[in-house]
Design a protein around this nucleic acid. Sequence first.
DNA 1: AGTCAAGTTGACAAC
DNA 2: GGTTGTCAACTTGAC
Length: 560
Amino acid sequence: MTSAAVSKPGAKRAARTVSLHWFRKGLRLHDNPALLEACEGATHVYPVFILDPHFAKPDVIGVLRYRFMLQTIKNLDDNLREIGSRLFVVKGQPAEALPRLFREWGVTKLTFESDTEPYAKVRDRHVCELAAEHQVHVQIFPSHTLHDPEAYVARLQGKDVPTVYQSFVKLFASMGPVAPVAPTVDAKRLPSPAPEYLSGRDRKKADQGNGHAGGEKIEEDRTRSDDFSVPGLSGIGYPETDAPTLYPGGERAALARMQEHLANVKYIVTFEKPKTSPNALRPSTTVLSPYLKHGALSSRLFYHSLCSTLAQHKGPHTQPPVSLVGQLLWREFFYLQGHATPNFDKMVGNPICRQIPWGKDAELLGAWEEARTGYPFIDACMTQLREEGWIHHLARHALACFLTRGDLWQSWEEGARVFEKYLLDADWSVNTGNWLWLSASAFFHQYFRVYSPVAFGAKTDKEGEYIRKYLPVLRKMPSKYIYEPWKAPKGVQETAGCVVGRDYPHPVVDHATVSKQLMGKMKAAYDANKEGGAKGEEKSGEKKRPAGEDGKGGKTKKRA
DNA sequence: AGTCAAGTTGACAAC
DNA sequence: GGTTGTCAACTTGAC
């Protein structure tokens, strides 16, 4: 690998391997089998991240979420530079950017981690075709989940993908051991890119790290290290923000956060999700989800680490679904569903989703999204979500139930879109699955169990400290009225400096009244779905299950 | 086929 | 304060 060879791409292609590793999720150096494969026998490896304009839209992906992602790839770049390489950040459509890079670098091998989301499936299929046209060999590894979703499907041998968690746990147990954690990519393993892409400092590291790119003399003026740098928010059309970074993005922060929790053995062995608090002032759960979503933390590393902590502990420990391993299995469960279910993120055409005639009221939806429903607990949860990018799982439950079947009768698709925008951990499969769940559209059916926007939060925060923190206007409201300020006598409201209707909204709906009404609507919708499901053909003799019995692109699927 | 227990985490009243 | 049963009401999976 001389610089001459680099300047004449393809000249001796057969004799050498130039790898392009495409980072999307899997933003890490540990447990990254696709990146290891890129290293295998390569003269150069080009680590690439593509900023796809499909995602870079502030009204689709909020600024905090995008900032977290940029921090994550910045840390990835830092970590790569530590070992004599770097990240190449490219703006554009992958289908345009990649062929250009193939030609420019004489790429012979493309590696990446498989992705089960719909947009990614289409994108990757197209990229594979383009790679073939460029004689680029493609290698894809499933390392985002504990097992490859396809492996579960194969294991099921045509049976439906389980829609019940406990059934999934059995399937998981039948899969055999989770693959071990792959060795972390280091300077010895990772061939550097062509030296002209490294700054003098990084080039020196590359020379020390391995022999692949060493010994070359490149003049400073040919250094191109600024061409592919990690941009700031403004560099991709986002506004800057001065919101504090509560959860810094990146593999380094991910591993530190995991280790911090693992060190607390008591916390690990006694963890019970339902007993954690949605309105604690400090998160009562691990907040590893943003890191797992981007793959800055490997789910397999977390899983194996948990298992070894539990094994070393001689006493009893909690179990799925409530334990920490149980949380990873929920993720796994929804990833499988998202992979196997057509139109998973839609009601229409989704075979596991009950068809429910949700209303369409921009006023109500806006009140919910903008934290002005008049229910302090709901508005506080939404405010924390918007300001910090993370809220507790049960806070998500309360918000989701309120928007859909509990109070506002708005579509879960709208709610899912809002969560996708604000959550640092916005994870398409998991988020969609939870909205299906909470709206009693799939997985969960006891629609008469409704979260009270007043009582639920009060169970774990009698004084309403959480509300006072996120809704300062209610800071001086007596605890007796903090969850229901409209019930406070006028004089109390005046004294507290928060007059309902002036300083804080009236409730948009009356929960007691409306939740009862909506239960009736849910019952009617359920009955209508039982009627034979597909509108039009009503063969009363056929299955009693609603439109489309299974979530798999299986055999006897009722069209969607 | 029919029955029954279970289902990640509801609210509320009664004890 | 913790547990239990009730509330109109659900579906799934196992047997």
